[in-house]
Design a protein around this nucleic acid. Structure first.
Length: 824
RNA sequence: GGGCGCUUGGCGCAGUGGCUAGCGCGCCUGCUUUACACGCAGGAGGUCAGAGGUUCAAAUCCUCUAGCGCCCACCA
């Protein structure tokens, strides 16, 4: 073995794993691989039965966006560690890898990448460009996931825009339609004037903006009286349909029922009362416009107000605004304020900062517009969805509160139609004559209504249809990932009890979207929870604890880290924090990982160099074990136990730390030093040497296996170099996780060994304080003790102590003597 | 305004009722000991955010306060 551990292990072993199908699910599914596997079906079945329970994972399909970012590397590594552990426990792993590549996120990526605007292109051309762009960037993108050592079965792959996913998405859309869960309605919805599409509540972000709070004077009809209304949005005056005061507000009690003239636009509106009015805000009188905010919308419904739209879909003033038509919102605001000033109706203006809702994808302020949209009815099932949340195991547990909090605060049904282009079409036509909805037939899916006509006539007899032009929200498809994954599996036995899957791993930012929507779909279509366990990863922050973003210029690319330190080091960093917690990026931690990898390499190099004439096959339980070996092996059993307990609870960081402590302190610093004299100076057939060799072999292999989920590359490298030919399994990742050997647990020996370590520490301390080398000779060591147990310990480990600390003679004396423990 | 999380040596973190509160980095003193100087041995450094309470016993449980972060609401 080389003195330096080899670099660039990533390509080498990831290639090997793929070529040898180390992470392949047996039997393998997928349309292409089904054919491939037909000849091997029998052997696969046997293989499958040999392995244990199914562990199925609903892997997050990353949104294709050019490059993997550090947040991905972080959370996917955490998932992979857990899955590697389960694989080594002998479970059959279903660990697919998909990509999410349709809808607005993909469109925006393509627009940016290609410098185009979807709104200015022909629809077909844009769709083609999207497909082409994806084709270009996807292989390199997926390679990023391979480079961090993801142990997915990359044959179980999907893209949320592929034909199979379209079929599934449309099928379940029709399913919802048939059960009356999905409806089309012209209703006020959240609208992005930038992207010119409807958006869902979950896609909102917010932004602090500078604004002006204007006090505007309105005249009462048939009176000279004026009232003052404060607003930040004077451009909505044309949409003003009512004025509200609080029923308990004594100041304005006499105003209720009176009529008011809206300045400039002249419409007559009534003053009404409503509890939702905040008496403290502004003058306590508020105008209701269709629609300035959610409250306006609620008043529109509860008070049956008229509808006047002054902002059109492109974010410009509509024709109902007369001379302001065509102006942008901001232009109109300036002009209207100007006119109000001329009429002396602006009584005051106050500069303020306030939060406005924006679209998370483009950061543009959201408007509320009534449009025709498709909705999935969810508001009536809040209780049921909360119940379902309690049936799943959340790791960490408190993440469930986020799910619950989100559901409790839901105000909108889920709007799933988008007025965009690159997405899964809604499989619907409308009869030209009677306007009735015509559903696509299941067997014809996937369909694109824009390019096809229904094969049957409408029930009214007409054969002419108009296609639905809208596409589905991306989440409407990605909320079906469990069904998509199931569709890739060939085995009937597995398909039969597919739900709930074993695990949904993801980061916390998409609890209110991907997680919530998947639970919702699973409930509507199957009445079941989609998974048993949920593991939620935290976020990556920059070294100062701030969010990483392109605008801040503090992005760190995983590729660069891998190039410099290797993927194992990156994984080491990602595993250093407990699940759910945010982690700052610290190069130090990556270096620490690299240090650990080097240490593993060196310890292995030493160990293996002393195993040349040792054959594990000739070792049996009857062989005698040297007392120091009994001590180490006993302690190793405890370590296995602790690791196992931690991994089971998704506590990979504590599992890693326990392994590390045993490896570094017990094995390297102590045991290897104490074993040297036996492996260097004893004869080959001396039982004490054989015992040492067995212990070295067994302990190193166990340590490698304990590290394997976190550090898959270096452990594989060493396994292949030495252990593969002895252990027979093709890869360390196909070996079984260390099992506790009860026969090796020896409490008394463990206790005695710990005492030996204390004595050794005393000796080391003494030498260190005298500035001596640890190799310095001790002529005579006298141990004074009243404790006879110590005598036994000396008789057990005396030789190890003498050899390791270079002591010529050890004396044991009954009694106590201060400051004279050692004689040099 | 609501919910959740965090606050432990200079820095980054472990530790969730019990021996003298741990780890890594950094710092100091030594050691070129044939696996490793990306190492080894030793050492300094903390009233566990603050206040109160429960308990024989609290960093750990409860209450309050402060600071930071995230999610949500507010948007007239």
């Amino acid at each position: 073995m080389e003195k330096q551990h080899p670099k660039n292990l990533e390509k080498k072993w990831q290639g090997f794993w793929e070529k040898e199908g180390i992470y392949k699910l047996n039997p393998v599914g997928g349309s292409k691989s089904k054919k491939e596997m037909q000849g091997k079906q029998i052997s696969n079945r046997v293989n499958f039965k040999k392995r244990g329970a199914i562990f199925s994972v609903d892997t997050p399909p990353p949104t294709v966006s050019g490059k993997m970012h550090l947040g991905h590397a972080f959370s996917y590594t955490q998932q992979d560690i857990i899955i590697r552990y389960h694989r080594m426990k002998g479970e059959s792993i279903i660990f697919p890898f998909g990509t999410d590549d349709n809808g607005l996120p993909t469109e925006r990526f393509v627009e940016k990448e290609k410098g185009v605007s979807a709104l200015e292109m022909k629809r077909e051309d844009f769709v083609k460009l999207c497909q082409q762009t994806l084709k270009e960037v996807k292989p390199a993108f997926i390679q990023n996931w391979k480079d961090i050592g993801m142990s997915c079965d990359f044959n179980l792959s999907y893209s949320t825009i592929d034909q199979n996913c379209q079929k599934i998405s449309q099928r379940f859309f029709i399913d919802l339609y048939k059960m009356g869960r999905i409806y089309r309605k012209k209703a006020p919805i959240l609208w992005c004037p930038q992207c010119q599409t409807a958006v869902a509540q979950a896609e909102l972000a917010d932004k602090m903006i500078d604004s002006v709070f204007y006090d505007i004077s309105f005249s009462l009809k048939d009176s000279k009286k004026q009232i003052t209304i404060s607003t930040t949005r004077p451009e909505l005056l044309p949409s003003c349909v009512a004025i509200f005061v609080h029923p308990q507000d004594k100041r304005y009690k006499n105003l209720i029922g009176k009529k008011v003239i809206v300045p400039i636009f002249g419409q007559m509106v009534s003053i009404k009362e409503d509890e939702k009015v905040d008496m403290e805000k502004g003058s306590g009188i508020v105008m209701c416009c269709t629609f300035g905010d959610v409250t306006d919308m609620e008043w529109y419904f509860t008070h049956h107000l008229p509808l006047i739209i002054s902002i059109s879909k492109d974010g410009k003033m509509s024709k109902t605004t007369g001379k302001f038509q065509g102006l942008t919102i901001n232009q109109a605001r300036v002009k209207i304020v100007d006119e109000l000033k001329k009429e002396k109706r602006i009584l005051a203006e106050k500069k303020i900062k306030h939060l406005v809702n924006t679209h998370e994808r483009c950061n543009r302020a959201i408007e509320i517009l009534p449009t025709w949209q498709w909705f999935i009815k969810i508001l009536d099932k809040k209780e049921e969805l909360l119940e379902l949340g309690k049936k799943m195991n959340w790791y960490p547990e408190y993440m469930r509160y986020r799910y619950e909090h989100w559901i409790k605060n839901l105000k909108w049904d889920w709007c799933v139609s988008r007025q965009r282009f690159f997405g899964i079409p809604i499989p619907i036509w409308y009869c030209k004559k009677c306007k009735k909805v015509k559903l696509a037939k299941i067997k014809d899916l996937p369909v694109n209504p824009l390019g096809a006509q229904p094969k049957e006539k409408c029930s009214c007899g007409s054969a002419e249809f108009l296609p639905e032009k809208d596409v589905l929200d991306t989440w409407a498809t990605s909320s079906l990932t469990p069904q998509i994954v199931e569709s890739l599996i060939a085995s009937r036995a597995i398909k039969k009890n597919f739900l709930p899957m074993s695990l949904r791993p993801q980061a916390h930012d998409i609890i209110s979207t991907w997680l919530f929507y998947t639970v919702t779909r699973s409930y509507f279509h199957f009445g079941k929870i989609p998974w048993k366990d949920i593991m939620i990863s935290g976020f990556v922050l920059d070294p100062k604890g701030e969010k990483m973003s392109k605008s801040k210029g503090n992005i760190i690319e995983p590729n660069k880290i891998i190039e410099k330190y290797g993927a194992d080091s990156l994984r080491y960093w990602a595993s250093g924090v407990s699940l759910g917690k945010n982690l700052r990026y610290q190069e130090k931690e990556i270096k620490n990982g690299h240090r650990t990898v080097t240490k593993i390499w060196n310890a292995s190099r030493f160990t293996i160099s002393h195993l040349k004439n040792f054959d594990i096959k000739n070792w049996s339980n009857k062989n005698k074990l040297y007392s120091l070996d009994q001590f180490l092996l006993s302690k190793l059993q405890k370590t296995i136990q602790k690791c196992e307990d931690s991994f089971k609870k998704y506590e990979f960081s504590s599992a890693r730390k326990k392994t590390e402590t045993f490896f570094w302190n017990d094995f390297c610093d102590n045991y290897l030093e104490l074993v040297k004299w036996r492996v260097y100076s004893l004869k080959e057939n001396d039982w004490r040497k054989k015992s040492a060799q067995f212990t070295l072999y067994y302990t190193l292999l166990t340590i490698l296996k304990l590290f394997a989920p976190v550090l898959p590359f270096i452990t594989e490298e060493i396994y292949q170099l030495y252990f593969r030919k002895k252990e027979r399994q093709k890869s360390i990742h196909q070996t079984t996780f260390p099992k506790i050997d009860q026969k090796l647990i020896k409490e008394k020996r463990k206790f005695q060994g710990e005492k030996l370590m204390e004595i050794l520490a005393e000796i080391r301390k003494e030498k260190s304080s005298k500035n001596l080398s640890q190799k310095a000779e001790i002529k005579k060591l006298t141990i004074y003790s009243k404790n006879k147990e110590l005598l036994e310990i000396i008789s057990l480990f005396g030789e190890d102590l003498k050899q390791t600390a270079n002591i010529k003679e050890i004396c044991f004396k009954q009694g106590y003597k201060k400051d004279n423990k050692f004689l040099f």
